[in-house]
């Protein structure tokens, strides 16, 4: 049965779009049929991170308004045939999203895909609440930083109150994805530790994605990091996350960047 997953955070710039692309690709690499849907109407970026910015013809708003059929708007990934993208509109704003329209698109997607991953816009307004509305599962992307943790707490509250599942008396399954984590700084007491964030937010941990240059390198070239550098530390963290989303259970470890001798000697100063 299809699962609707929302990638959300409240705060902007924590890695929602990067994580959507990486998780989507990782699940597709595991053989699942995946669609990633950009809900950031007016400020779309998932197309760019996925490297499909020049292939956008129709978008989510066109489908909602009946200007295009869903298959016309879906962009199939050139590297993974079972991965598709439904882009957001760049010219309209989030008021063009309607609750009925989104419901129709999601139910149509449920028939074609195993995973529907909704990339939420930042904030707690219409775009964000519509992105989470149909979610079965939520990935809350959080940086080990006070404002991000606070906003994640708000989002967790909204997931428990304002979703279709909440209205039906059920719960959205919630997972914490800790991104831009620096184990060395956390060990020195300069950054919130994994346990600190977990204790404060009290939701289960999906994975820890370390701060890494591979993430920027991947978005520079328009490829999910799991495709661009599958052996890298962040890619392995996303592959682990994808496995856990599919129900596998194994211990979450704090990832360590594989460094050479020089890297270990100077890594501390660079960090």
């Amino acid at each position: 049965m299809a699962k609707v997953l929302v990638v959300t955070s409240g705060k902007g710039g924590v890695g929602k779009t990067t994580s959507t692309a990486a998780l989507g690709a990782a699940l597709a690499q595991n053989g699942k049929r995946v669609v990633v849907v950009d809900f950031d109407v007016g400020l779309r970026n998932l197309d760019l991170v996925m490297g499909a910015e020049r292939r956008v013809v129709f978008d989510l708003i066109n489908v909602i308004h009946g200007d295009a059929k869903l298959p016309q708007a879906l962009i199939r990934d050139k590297r993974l045939e079972n991965l598709s993208l439904l882009p957001a509109s760049q010219t309209r704003d989030k008021d063009a999203l309607t609750i009925e329209g989104v419901a129709r698109v999601i139910s149509e997607l449920r028939e074609k895909f195993d995973w529907i991953i909704c990339d939420s816009p930042a904030g707690i307004e219409k775009g964000a609440t519509l992105a989470m509305h149909h979610a079965d599962t939520a990935v809350i992307v959080t940086n080990p930083e006070v404002s991000s943790v606070r906003d994640s707490d708000r989002i967790i509250g909204l997931l428990d109150a304002k979703t279709a599942k909440a209205a039906a008396g059920e719960k959205v399954e919630k997972h914490l994805l800790l991104t831009r984590y620096d184990p060395a700084r956390a060990a020195r007491g300069e950054m919130l530790k994994v346990d600190d964030v977990l204790e404060i937010l009290s939701i289960p941990l999906l994975s820890i994605v370390p701060e890494s240059e591979e993430v920027l390198r991947a978005s520079n070239v328009g490829a999910p990091v799991t495709l661009n550098a599958p052996q890298s530390t962040p890619a392995r963290a996303y592959f682990d996350a994808a496995k856990r989303l599919q129900g596998e259970k194994f211990e979450v470890v704090v990832p360590e960047e594989r460094r050479g001798f020089m890297g270990r000697l100077f890594g501390r100063r660079v960090a």
Partner: peptide, 17 residues
């Protein structure tokens, strides 16, 4: 000298939230 600021962040968040 390293200033450990993470415990401050943790405490502020706990009180605020």
């Amino acid at each position: 000298p390293t200033r450990t600021t993470a415990p401050v962040a943790r405490e502020r968040l706990q009180i605020l939230l």
